[in-house]
């Protein structure tokens, strides 16, 4: 079984993003970037399936500029066999991402496509479901477990108040939740070796896909600030404040 894993390059989760002075967008110049955490869970699961003999090849794909090579190197260092960069300068939104990934899927013909359940920058949580729709295949969204059967996979996903289990015919698209696994740490020698592995580059134009944005961002802003809090001197004072002032007890 061949697995394709899509990885996005995002602002590192520990960075507090700032807004450009004109309020048009967030300012990510010079900010630490990295692989989207949920995509790292997706990749980890693909690698574990390969290590258990359930998959033969794991291919990582990323969409964007040349800078995206760093997240692909990270994917190779974790253990991906190959990496593909679809180069585009277009402002990608979920539908555009799904269209580009569909074109890659048609070239690569994977049996299973894994993505993170959402990216921690735009928080849209749509690319996987949209890709499944465009491919006309089944979807397992925000999964916490996956099992491979013969012609099917069985996934466990979160629903309100519990989990549900679905069987999906292959090929299928699955998106990873945080609790699916704990991604491995990348060791330095692996990172060095990954530098020698080739990254195949395809231009988005070559794929013949219109991935142009449908949404225009009019402005960004800081959310309204919280009113300043106070320090209390004792547990008794805290309980008193919570009961009388905040009325939450």
């Amino acid at each position: 079984m061949k697995i394709l894993v899509a990885v996005k390059r995002v602002v590192d989760f520990n960075v507090k993003v700032r807004i450009k002075p004109d309020g048009s967008d967030v300012d990510i110049a010079g900010v630490k970037m990295g692989i989207n955490p949920f995509d790292e869970n997706a990749l980890e699961e693909a690698l574990r399936l390969k290590e258990r003999g359930k998959a033969s090849e794991v291919v990582a794909v990323s969409l964007g500029g040349t800078a995206n090579q760093d997240v692909l190197r990270h994917a190779l260092a974790m253990g991906a066999d190959r990496a593909i960069l679809v180069e585009t300068e277009v402002n990608l939104q979920p539908l555009g991402v799904a269209k580009l990934l569909k074109a890659v899927v048609e070239r690569e013909q994977p049996d299973l496509i894994l993505l993170g359940k959402q990216a921690i920058d735009s928080d849209a949580g749509q690319a996987g479901q949209m890709l499944a729709a465009l491919l006309g295949v089944g979807q397992g969204v925000a999964i916490s477990a996956i099992e491979i059967w013969d012609e099917e996979i069985v996934v466990t996903r979160e629903i309100d108040g519990g989990t549900e289990t679905l069987a999906l015919r292959l090929p299928a698209v699955v998106t990873a939740d945080l609790r699916l696994n704990e991604p491995r740490y990348v060791k330095l020698p692996n990172l060095m070796m990954a530098k020698k592995k080739p990254i195949q580059t395809i231009s988005a134009a070559e794929l013949g896909v219109d991935a142009s944005p449908r949404l225009t961002q009019l402005k960004v802003a800081d959310p309204p600030p919280r009113k300043p809090g106070i320090k209390v001197g004792s547990v008794q004072e805290l309980v008193e404040k919570l009961r009388v002032e905040a009325k939450v007890l």
Partner: peptide
Amino acid sequence: HTRFSKNVLPRTAALLDVAMIAD
């Protein structure tokens, strides 16, 4: 914006070839 709609509506949007605006 729930786990149910997050599962269903992106698929619907892509089939209709439109964007979805979440949350």
